[in-house]
Nucleic acid binder design. Sequence first.
DNA 1: TTGTACGCGTTATCAC
DNA 2: GTGATAACGCGTACAA
Lengths: 350, 350
Amino acid sequence: MKKTEKPGTLHWLARKAGVSIATISRTLRRPDSVAPQTRQRILALVERHRFVPDGRASTFSSNRSGVIGLIVPTISNSIYAEFTEAIQNRLQAAGLNLLIANANYSAELEREIIRKLIESRVEGVILTGYDRDPGLYQLLRRYKIPFVVTWSISPKPSIPAISFDNYAAATEATELLVKLGHRRIALICGVTAINDRAAQRLAAYRDVLRRYKISFDRALVAEHPFEIEISADATTRLMSLQKPPTAIFCANDIQALGALFTCQRLQFRVPDDVSIIGFDDLPITRVVIPPLSTVHIPAAQMGNAAADALIDAARKGIPVKSRKIDTEIIMRGSTGAPPARVRIRSSSPS
Amino acid sequence: MKKTEKPGTLHWLARKAGVSIATISRTLRRPDSVAPQTRQRILALVERHRFVPDGRASTFSSNRSGVIGLIVPTISNSIYAEFTEAIQNRLQAAGLNLLIANANYSAELEREIIRKLIESRVEGVILTGYDRDPGLYQLLRRYKIPFVVTWSISPKPSIPAISFDNYAAATEATELLVKLGHRRIALICGVTAINDRAAQRLAAYRDVLRRYKISFDRALVAEHPFEIEISADATTRLMSLQKPPTAIFCANDIQALGALFTCQRLQFRVPDDVSIIGFDDLPITRVVIPPLSTVHIPAAQMGNAAADALIDAARKGIPVKSRKIDTEIIMRGSTGAPPARVRIRSSSPS
DNA sequence: TTGTACGCGTTATCAC
DNA sequence: GTGATAACGCGTACAA
């Protein structure tokens, strides 16, 4: 007496249709392998009952989850949106699903996410940055889950990375300011302790200063989360120094915008009194006044490449190969030569 | 001869430990229900072999997927980031996982996503906007998946919504401009055909004009995707009209920023020559010059409420109840009375 | 406290 | 072209 099959399953539908579950399954997966007549009857039934097969069971039985996990450190920076959308499009075309996870700049949370992804046996993982507990990489390998690091070039060859070179890009940006004649250059960047991209950009900044024999001043470096208001406050502090900088390298466009508006609010002209260069090349940098000079990051290109690599890895077993993406300095209106004489500030900022 | 259990499974580990799979499973799920000695031995083994149980199998066997799906129309607007992070935090605290999906303002893509979510038997779905094929709601109900609409109040009581009222908020914003004395008010909003939030805000704008006997001018309405450069172009067109508007209501802060910078670029003073009011209250609105007047949307609060509702629905079977969230007009520096005399533009914008 | 055995819903492999 | 049935890996009632 099995008249009461649980509704919404193949068994149940098979009974209703008077065929075997195999036939239903086939109708759904490879309709051609079923007689047109049978197919029609079954499809009508599927339609009528709004049958949606249990993906967990099928993934489980076929041993293909069909999902790629993407872990981003934040979703509030739209540069990751461009990146994510590129990945999504590529995966969709390949019949894979994207699972987006936000680690919120927390190593702890990222660890949990990676574990969850392994638990659900994703077919690939796209990571942001390389700096994490090596055990996590081992875990991914242990379960034969292909992965790729993005937004950062890994120092270890064993960890495949598809990314631009943060150090090189930041070097270029800092050097540009030096070549414009600046000697007092501030840096606003992310929190290097939890962000290897920020750390690399800071390292580049320091190294350029050293190379040009410019003394490094700790007071000119501000590490902060990527929130525009925090960056604005940091800029206020920077520009209130006895000797304010004549240029600010912001290792992130959000921070650059905070710096730009704050300088203007404090009556510093950009770029006449102070130059600002950003990093990422968000669309808004082209619209603000003056347009922001910045480092263009081909986020979509990087996303495409990472997605393609994982598709090949998941479907054809091709190991992920590291690849470097080019960046480009975009000169717009926020950078120029330093003012001829050191500007003396007459009153404190409000 | 079952010596060669497949590695990375409970069976395999059970054999290694010399216990049954049940004991391993128990050790992992409810450690207390196992003798300390056994537990230690097993945990050591789990640790050593980096064992990660197959979540699909467990979810499948326990019939609890433990995931809530969130579908946002875009991830490039940081207002959704705040929303998403609130949801994520709440769910995490409740032991549920968040699956973020980006529908990219495509009904087609959203349909596929909803189907995928049902396939994976998520325990709840958070939707953005109410306007979609009713069949999708039926499908969710059919599989007893609790859902809630956000960012939009549903006109149908059968569809639970936890949201602010777009129409009311937009009415307030438009009315504010009218009360400041503006009669020539432009609207820049999203594409109403694919965005019910934009449609409601447009409806509010029209109704306010009608109520105040201000004639509706199609030329003053610009529907566009939420990209700052597109909004900038639209503003250029608007401000190049024979009789440019004295105020612009932007149903989105991104578009408001595009409008602000463009007006300034065209030498219109904000708010002296033209007032601008946005919608969302992004952090950047407090930093730009002048600070942008806007409608504050309590995105985090809405996210918390939606998450809580779904947690209760998934865990305690409590049906989701609609709830209205309050918005608030934030007056800052971008709005004021219209100029005394109509400004005559002397040359065409570059 | 621990082990046995069944069920979860699908896919894949054979026979027929 | 179709049906029967053995996996897939885990959770869990029930037995020991």
